[in-house]
Amino acid sequence: MAGQVATGSRSGLRSALPLLLPAYLWLTVAIFLPLSAMVFFSFMTELPLSGKAWSFTLDNYATFFAQGLYWTLLLASLRLGLEVTLWCVVIGYPAAYVLAKVFRGRSREAIFLLVILPFWSNGLVRIFSWAMVLREGGILDTALNAVLPFKINIDLMYSYPAVIIGLVHSYVPYMVLTCYLTLQAIDDSLIEAGRSLGASRLQMLKRVIIPLSMPGLVAGAALIFVPVVGSFMEPRILGGRTGTFYGTVIEDQFVAVFNWPLGAALSFILLAVVLVILALASPVLKRAA
């Protein structure tokens, strides 16, 4: 019996190989090679493509620790990631709950489409449309002044809230989707059983529904937190001068200052910090899930 299983899995692997190969080949070429090159660059004094003489050094990493500015920006970016993730939970979880437990059939499909719709538009277009909405004399300002009897000035453009708004808008669908999947898997009879035992809706949410949908919340948070900490497009366009974050500094090293080695080093420090945070959080999250 055991032998049969073993041969079964071996022949299974042989037939699976052609199916796995393209994906792994692509991952190797598209991610592993450039990433290795970046690791290599981060230990260089000069970019080899520039034609100047170069040697190996640890200076790029030392720069991060020597200048408080990078620390401050990294902390600001981590705070940004945390805030955006929290807003996505606050906005996305209730929406996912309603989608999974209230709507049925066609109306669910329609509302679902509205959640996914932003994915179909270009990210840059989305950010610039927010710029149109948030600036002074923009859509939000005009609309509010048309309704309200007194004059107010809404100028959120180039501010921290504008960055938050733009990022939450971009990332909230991830939270909706991951939470929707776990919420939908919760059998309705569990909720009915809880109610028959006298639990209020709030007690059901706290003791059954949130614990059971924790994997979705964790997956959504990881999907949002990691890219937001390294984000640069939204901070730059919507934040202006206030939008200097760790991600924008890395981008500057690559596209403005052309100090690729420093940019690469900063990227890997960010990667290390994010991995440490996820590792520290995982036992806590696993217990909760």
């Binding site: 059998d187 009879s189 009915e192 059983a193 809880g194 109610r195 035992l197 209020s200 059954v208 059971l212």
Partner: peptide, 20 residues
């Protein structure tokens, strides 16, 4: 009267035990 106020006990076909 809603179910949570009726003081009934119910056993479901799939048992509906809380897996967590």
């Amino acid at each position: 009267v809603p179910v949570e106020k009726r003081r009934i006990g119910m056993v479901f076909q799939n048992y509906a035990l809380f897996p967590n």
